[in-house]
Write a protein that binds this DNA or RNA. Structure first.
Lengths: 338, 338
DNA sequence: TTGAAAGCGCTAACAT
DNA sequence: ATGTTAGCGCTTTCAA
């Protein structure tokens, strides 16, 4: 029977030590699985911990060892599968280590990001992983002062604060533009969330635009809105886009959720894809391939990026030398929408 | 200029105190915004903290105060918007308090949930919020020994461990069944993820089934699969369902993502909704209303449940008396799919 | 309004 | 293989 803390206060190592007839240090060793403890002693201590229902106090542990086991992760939102898959990747990379991720949401707001960094820093995390590459100068300064590994993930940058794992967003735009040009499309439009919100999307836009400009064409229309990015954005603004420019061949979207929403409108309105209009996008989400007409898109390896970020962090924490910038690449997925 | 820790180790309160010419206690008071500190002293200390780039060490703080400011939240997955909206609600409820949520993912696995609870308990959280109502007995025991507020959210239960905020899942099923019966549907089928995985979905199924049985009908077919719940599940298994029973009027789904996937198949296959077949579901997700034919569904108030959970926790932490069980209700949303 | 002393529960570093 | 000692950086409690 567990005789755990009905006494008001949680148990301490000392009580376990007393019960097992050993010193607190021995219990501490068993707890951390370190050093050499005699197998029988270990078993005895473990039995006592079980019976008493003792739970290791990591607050005291982290203070004494002056290092934590939390990895602070900041993502812009959890509303996009892109970031939840990233988190799943990080979790996978951290599996079977002493480290755990602690998630913060910045809501695409740089000031909030700074607040989050400060708050999390209070818990003295072992490392930071940020799913963005644009920060306030102050944020960078605070991060650097922590002297711990810092990963910027998703977007490839030349001069990361510390470590970068990402893909070349401009190139993703270029590649899609090239693909569409090769297919003979000439009259392009763009629909997406506001570029000041989603920096990666704006880089893709620029990459795309640069490519088509090489062929002496430009977007004949660009509609960006400050609504929350997602299916509804595409569903709600596609009619407006089509009204504003009837002579479009193909629409490029900021991401698959928006493209899916736009396709919903087309299906509802009897607009034929890709005959009346073609659609192309970025992300490689489940929904893109599940649509009645699979969406032509570019898949970003979110899970892999998350896993790699975690691995970089672990390597660094072990004192290993680590590749500072990793281009994870991406994959063009040809659907039937273009 | 910030002269922060280039010295290797992070700054301590002591160094701030020295710089400001006060005791560490005074700095501590400023840090926590408690007690009475002379306004001028406060300003002076704050200025020093800013200049030095000091970040409050919450590990030491939590240890000394023997109480943490983290709220442990465990959700089954982040792959469903249902849970990310719940988290957003919790975050909203915690806004402008000293508390922050720490998120854990159980992956619908009760053993993992126990592990998570134990791990999180190590950080001595101020409270637990669990987005499920079924736990291992050991999990319940460990939770109870923590003596802190425990909220079970999403599913309404009679005898919660401590506090419950949720909706009556059976009733949600019943209400939809009634709605469909009223519309004259008679031949029902079901498609969803395996009931051993998603307990709430199985309750809705049972509620639905009980209601139709009152009218002397039962599901003519039920297809449950262990694939990960989502759009793909509906998209991939709808053909199989239709093949196995061609004479169905209406299909009830475990949730909107599955229903949306199924509708994708129908659209692709030229099956007319709701004439050839009607679809009905549960969740009230963005995608349900964005489909070319909006899906008839039942909306669960995820955000509100999250917010309320946080509020209950805060009230309890303030020593207030708290309603133990709250039925948040739900809303039938009539689309065009049934 | 401010300060001094005594821990919070654990672990590093050094014995033995 | 196990124990002893001295903190980790903060807050509590009590005093001034």
């Amino acid at each position: 029977m567990a005789a755990n803390s009905k006494h008001g206060k949680p148990l301490t190592i000392e009580q376990v030590a007393a019960a097992a007839g050993v010193s607190t240090m021995t219990v501490s060793r068993v707890l951390r699985g370190t050093d050499n403890v005699a197998p029988e002693t270990r078993e005895k201590v473990k039995a006592c911990m079980d019976e008493l229902g003792y739970v290791h106090n990591k607050i005291a542990g982290a203070l004494a060892a002056s290092r934590g086991t939390q990895i602070a992760v900041i993502v812009p939102t959890l509303d996009s599968i892109v970031f939840t898959e990233l988190l799943a990747g990080i979790a996978a990379g951290l599996e079977n280590t002493v480290y755990q991720q602690v998630i913060g949401i910045s809501e695409y707001d740089k000031n909030r990001e700074l607040d989050m960094v400060r708050t999390m820093m209070g818990w003295r995390p072992a490392a930071f992983i940020l799913a963005s590459a644009r920060h306030l100068p102050k944020t960078v300064q605070v991060l650097q002062s922590s002297l711990c590994p810092i990963v910027e993930v998703m977007e490839l940058v030349r001069n990361p604060i510390d470590i970068c794992v990402g893909l070349d967003q401009r190139k993703a735009g270029r590649v899609m533009a090239k693909h569409l040009l090769d297919k003979g499309y000439k009259r392009f439009a763009y629909l997406g969330s506001d570029h000041s919100i989603d920096h990666a999307a704006s880089l893709r836009f620029k990459g795309f635009q640069n490519e088509i400009k090489k062929h002496a064409v430009d977007f004949i229309h660009k509609l960006t809105v400050t609504d929350q990015s997602g299916i509804s954005l595409g569903r709600n603004y596609m009619p407006q886009l089509l009204e504003q420019c009837r002579d479009v061949d193909v629409v490029y979207f900021s991401n698959d959720a928006v493209a899916a929403g736009a396709m919903m409108h087309c299906l509802a309105a009897g607009i034929e894809i890709p005959n009346d209009i073609a659609l192309a996008s970025f992300s490689g989400l489940e929904i893109a391939s599940a649509m009645p007409i699979p969406i032509t898109t570019v898949r970003s390896p979110r899970f892999e990026m998350g896993k790699l970020s975690a691995e970089r962090v672990l390597a660094r924490l072990l004192g290993e030398n680590v590749t500072r910038v990793t281009d994870t690449g991406f994959e063009l997925i040809e659907g039937a929408s273009a």
